[in-house]
Amino acid sequence: MPSIENRLWRFHGVAPTAWLAFVYLYLPIVILVVLSFNANKVATLWTGFSFDWYLRVLENDNILRATRNSLVVATGATVVSTFFATLAALAMASGPFRGKGVMNAMLGLPLLVPEIVTAVASLLFFLALGLELGLTTVLIAHIVFCLPFAYLPIRARLEGLDPRLAEAAADLYASRWQAFRRVTLPLILPGVVSGAMLAFIVSLDDFVITFFVAGAGATTLPVYIFGLIRMGITPEVNAISALLLMVSIAFVVLSYRVGRRPS
């Protein structure tokens, strides 16, 4: 633990730079949220407080349809990827074995490959198979890139787990399934919940991959918002964007609280 009198503390500029970084990160978010409550039709001119644009958003059928698509895809992708990732994490936590490195590398791919490359590869793959682009192709693509996000928190949780607990259960004549169900699962559950939440939020936020593999009927919220932004800055876009931001932030904070390792 660094002591207060640590002289590095007085390395000039460290604290101000850090604060600058925080301001830089949060200023646009704050401005966007504030402006979403702006009464004026000119999106950046403040005249008074109003909820109108939020009401306008909630009455917009296209936005509601896009939101429904987003929620359907995010829910499906979360359930499937979290289930798959939990199984994989359990296997990966057990000692070294052949193929572990390959598995690790494959799990890293969706994180490291630029989104646009994944998007192009997926698009070409679906088209080559003759699949019609739509919610199904979006769902498949989302399951793929959600996998590592669901996997990592579960894996981290298993890492901190004492293997002797499961052994103790076995000593007490628990079957493998019982030991998993009664000992391992409750212990890794916060990791599973945290992974599921991250998968959900990553799916809900994705734009580039969805933009490529979604057909005309499968517009998700970010794809719809992108279309709106390209047409111009309007108060409706402010409101729907602010809504999306606040949902994401709520989820991250929640996921952080749930997933924290017990100290």
Binding site: F22, L25, Y26, L27, P28, I29, I31, L32, L35, A43, T44, L45, L198, I201, V202, L204, D205, F207, P222, I225, F226, I229, I233, V237, N238, S241, L244, L245, S248, I249, F251, V252, V253, Y256
Partner: peptide, 30 residues
């Protein structure tokens, strides 16, 4: 956590926020 929140929030929307800030007649300009 403060650093992570922007990491997890919608980048498209946050990019849009910069359009509000940077455009002519926007906040930085005025």
């Amino acid at each position: 956590l403060l650093i992570s929140i922007p990491f997890w929030t919608n980048l498209l929307v946050r990019t849009y926020a910069w359009m509000l800030l940077l455009r002519n007649g926007g906040l930085i300009d005025s």
